[in-house]
């Protein structure tokens, strides 16, 4: 498989070194490492990588530099996928990112990098144009909703919905929840019907529909 190219923007040196190692394992050549948002934009302009791994919180103000840089990236260089890493989940940031861009986007908690194999899978999924959302993002989107059609879902269907929102494929959901793929497909059909969502084949389109639903009328 041809190696792809990635840049990383992360101000914590320790974490950056680790993520660079994992990127290497996942089949990415890290062409630039930066520690702030401006450096990231310059690096992406120069290298046009397939993937950018970006910390949400970076100098100078340590708030949402990363998110703003990511929005700019997706606007100007749509061929570069973006995976955000964050100390904590701010679901509105995730929602803002996902509202404008339907593919090649991810938002994970920093501590997920420790689960190397899953993290590698998320990196590849995002670089392939898919989505990878932290389960915590989905959970936080769920707490915002008032009494609604979600109440009609069964416990199992909720789990499938959460996995779906994270960006997993049917096979991925089946593996995670220890179900057969056909059972997963059945659950998904049931969920989409109960929530009045359109059927979609591509995983990321489905994710988008689910997310739109989750952050909709709260």
């Amino acid at each position: 498989m041809q190696r792809r190219r990635a840049v990383i923007a992360e101000d914590s040196v320790l974490l950056r070194m680790g993520v660079v190692k994992i990127l290497d394992m996942a089949g990415f050549d890290v062409v630039a490492e930066c520690d702030d948002a401006d450096g990231l934009l310059v690096a992406v302009e120069e290298h046009r990588p397939d993937l950018a791994v970006v910390d949400v919180r970076m100098p100078p103000s340590f708030t949402d530099e990363g998110i703003r840089a990511a929005l700019t990236l997706r606007e100007r260089w749509p061929e570069t996928a973006v995976l955000m890493l964050s100390q904590y989940v701010e679901e509105r940031y995730a929602a803002e990112l996902l509202a404008r861009h339907t593919s090649g986007i991810g938002y994970l908690l920093k501590q997920r990098v420790a689960d190397v194999e899953e993290f590698i899978e998320a990196l590849r999924r995002v670089a392939d144009g898919g989505t990878a959302l932290d389960p915590q993002v989905v959970a936080q989107l769920l707490v915002r909703r008032g009494s609604d059609p979600l109440d009609r879902l069964t416990e199992r269907e909720r789990e499938v919905l959460a996995s779906m929102a994270e960006g997993r494929s049917n096979a991925g959901i089946a593996a995670q929840l220890v179900l057969s793929e056909s059972a997963v497909a059945k659950h998904i059909n049931s969920i989409l019907a109960k929530l009045d969502l359109p059927r979609a084949d591509a995983d990321h389109r489905r994710v988008l529909a689910v997310l739109r639903f989750l952050k909709g009328s709260g």
């Binding site: 320790l14 974490l15 680790g18 190692k21 501590q111 990098v113 190397v116």
Partner: peptide, 8 residues
């Protein structure tokens, strides 16, 4: 995190 990552 760095330690967990390296162990991973």
């Amino acid at each position: 995190v760095s330690m967990a990552l390296n162990l991973g």
